[in-house]
């Protein structure tokens, strides 16, 4: 899109969107949200970025987000699979603080990565037909 106002405003709004998404992912065990909702917000933020800025990129650079998304899907999946191999969770701290449940925070981050990259890759595969 060639809209100046959208681009200038978006540069600042994107920062808030990303921070909010990461906040929801990390506090998944303390407030509603967790991996899925936070991952969706992160994914939508990056999606908006590519909608507004991304269509002028050269053809070779366009495959890049898809490849990164694939790698992150792999990472997210492996992190989530590893969760089941540990006997119970990792180290447990005081309830109510940020790092109180050992492996579940890492799993939330993995799920967030996975959902965000899934949304991006679906968008890319649908748009790429042209």
């Amino acid at each position: 899109m060639d809209d100046y106002i959208t681009r200038i405003v978006f540069r600042y709004v994107l920062l808030f969107i990303l921070v909010y998404g990461i906040y929801i992912v990390l506090h998944g065990h303390l407030s509603p949200g967790g991996g899925f909702a936070g991952g969706m917000i992160l994914g939508m933020g990056m999606l908006l970025y590519f909608l507004i800025f991304g269509f002028e990129w050269k053809a070779k650079l366009r495959r890049l987000p898809l490849d990164v998304a694939i790698v992150f899907i792999g990472l997210g999946g492996i992190i989530e699979a590893v969760k089941f191999m540990l006997p119970k969770h990792g180290p447990i701290g005081a309830p109510g603080t940020l790092f109180s449940v050992g492996i579940i925070s890492v799993v939330n981050i993995g799920i967030g990565l996975l959902v965000a990259s899934t949304i991006l890759s679906i968008f890319y595969l649908l748009v790429e037909e042209e």
Binding site: G34, F36, I122, L125, L126, E129
Partner: peptide
């Protein structure tokens, strides 16, 4: 419900891709 929402979202995305 959370699992169901994720499943519903995936199925909708897949169905829309096929419709495209």
């Amino acid at each position: 419900i959370l699992t169901g929402i994720v499943v519903s979202f995936s199925v909708t995305a897949f169905a829309l891709a096929i419709i495209v």
